[in-house]
Amino acid sequence: MTAIPVMIGRRMPLPAASGSSDAFAAEAAVPAAGAPLVDTHGRVHRDLRISLTDRCSLRCTYCMPEQGNEWLAKTSILTLDEIEQIARVAAADGITTFRLTGGEPLLRTDIVDVVRRLAAIEGPDGRPVQIAMTTNGIRLPELLPGLVEAGLQRLNISIDTLRRDRFHALTRRDRLDDVLAGIAAAAASGLRPLKLNAVAMRDVNDDELVDLVEFATAHDAQMRFIEQMPLDAGHTWDRTRMVTQDEILAALSRRWELTPVPGRGGAPAARWTLDGGPHTVGVIASVTAPFCGDCDRLRLTADGQLRNCLFSTTEYDLLPILRTEPAAAHEAGIDRMLRSCVHGKLPGHAINDPAFLQPARGMNAIGG
């Protein structure tokens, strides 16, 4: 089975020429199944973000249009069995954390079963994998007990504003009370660390940064601010609307003494303690302070495409392996595709390069 990357813009497979393409140049030297997933820049990959759907109960302005969305065909969405099959191979290759994303992962009707099946997977050392989730929180009050029982260990919940009018304008839905109820349920669940995510936007919510941190600490959660990235389906991203990490820290430092937390590792957020702790605040500064050199993440879209970077313009299609290859060949095929994806990873995302091209997919179709 030869790994076939797909160019996202045209979604056309590259020719599977033997030895002539850089994408396949190292195929003869692909490590054996079970070896760590190490790219050509020495980064070991331990985190796989699994998108379960491109559908969402909100329509955030920085993610997708309110109307006219082209949803993935239901027949292309990975089944629970297919997700588990990919995850088992990934775990054998050293992936230790699966983060479930969307769209909105809680819209998936089999979400509790997804968590239960993945939580039962063990790595080569016999340790169970970690199961995390990023959600808008709307369905947490009803689903969280079952998710915790199934093995969910960590939660990130998105909340960009505490003001009802702004929430409605940002998400085009009047669901703030539902999100707040989901956060309250998560705080009461005991799942820790609990993280709240907000995209910082100029003249939209940049006057709420302190309020959001105080809200998070009141719920024993870590607030994390995200620099707005060019990942909206409408391609309307404007760099001047982005609030930078320096601006975020300047605003917070007027309220708290901020002290950097060492030992970030591959985590996307740099952290600072508030007045010496115990609470912290994080900033994900993908635009002004990229952390590509320590990136240990891969992504799997809901329709079976592997991505080695959030901003990649190339995808690696697992569906032909899962749906046309003999079952006995699936494990080896998935392993080879994972390794080809990792091998093709670039040093960084190049957002700040004049030649940067925004991915054709929006964030909801890539997975958070």
Rank of each mutant, 00 (worst) to 15 (best):
residue 328 A to S: 14
residue 189 S to V: 02
residue 111 I to D: 08
residue 66 E to L: 15
residue 339 R to E: 09
residue 210 V to W: 05
residue 330 H to K: 11
residue 22 D to E: 13
residue 194 L to M: 01
residue 222 Q to H: 07
residue 80 L to A: 14
residue 73 A to W: 04
residue 142 E to W: 05
residue 44 V to T: 11
residue 261 V to Q: 08
residue 329 A to P: 11
residue 14 L to G: 12
residue 315 E to N: 09
residue 306 L to G: 14
residue 363 M to C: 09
residue 132 A to S: 11
residue 66 E to Q: 09
residue 295 C to H: 03
residue 38 V to I: 06
residue 109 T to V: 07
residue 66 E to C: 11
residue 139 R to G: 09
residue 257 E to Y: 03
residue 11 R to M: 08
residue 317 D to F: 11
residue 216 A to C: 10
residue 25 A to L: 08
residue 60 C to D: 05
residue 215 F to K: 01
residue 84 E to A: 04
residue 266 G to M: 08
residue 196 L to R: 13
residue 303 D to R: 03
residue 238 D to P: 04
residue 229 M to N: 08
residue 142 E to S: 13
residue 223 M to Q: 04
residue 214 E to N: 10
residue 189 S to L: 12
residue 355 A to N: 03
residue 190 G to E: 12
residue 200 A to R: 01
residue 8 I to M: 13
residue 131 I to F: 02
residue 362 G to M: 03
residue 196 L to P: 06
residue 312 S to H: 10
residue 128 P to L: 14
residue 270 A to E: 15
residue 187 A to G: 11
residue 180 L to T: 04
residue 25 A to F: 06
residue 229 M to T: 03
residue 1 M to T: 12
residue 250 A to C: 07
residue 295 C to W: 11
residue 339 R to A: 05
residue 281 V to Q: 14
residue 308 N to Q: 03
residue 326 P to I: 02
residue 149 E to I: 13
residue 150 A to E: 09
residue 273 T to V: 10
residue 81 D to N: 10
residue 302 A to F: 07
residue 182 G to C: 07
residue 196 L to H: 15
residue 243 V to R: 00
residue 244 T to W: 10
residue 14 L to T: 10
residue 281 V to Y: 14
residue 314 T to G: 08
residue 347 P to Y: 10
residue 60 C to S: 05
residue 273 T to W: 15
residue 7 M to L: 12
residue 81 D to M: 15
residue 240 T to G: 12
residue 348 G to Q: 10
residue 264 R to D: 15
residue 146 G to S: 15
residue 334 I to N: 12
residue 79 T to A: 03
residue 198 A to S: 09
residue 359 P to R: 08
residue 167 F to R: 04
residue 302 A to S: 03
residue 319 L to W: 08
residue 218 A to K: 12
residue 287 V to K: 08
residue 12 M to Q: 15
residue 361 R to G: 04
residue 309 C to Y: 07
residue 37 L to P: 00
residue 213 V to T: 03
residue 354 P to R: 10
residue 298 L to V: 00
residue 176 L to R: 07
residue 36 P to C: 01
residue 76 S to G: 06
residue 243 V to A: 07
residue 351 I to R: 01
residue 362 G to S: 01
residue 63 C to H: 01
residue 231 L to Y: 04
residue 104 E to G: 03
residue 67 Q to R: 14
residue 251 A to Y: 00
residue 328 A to R: 04
residue 71 W to N: 05
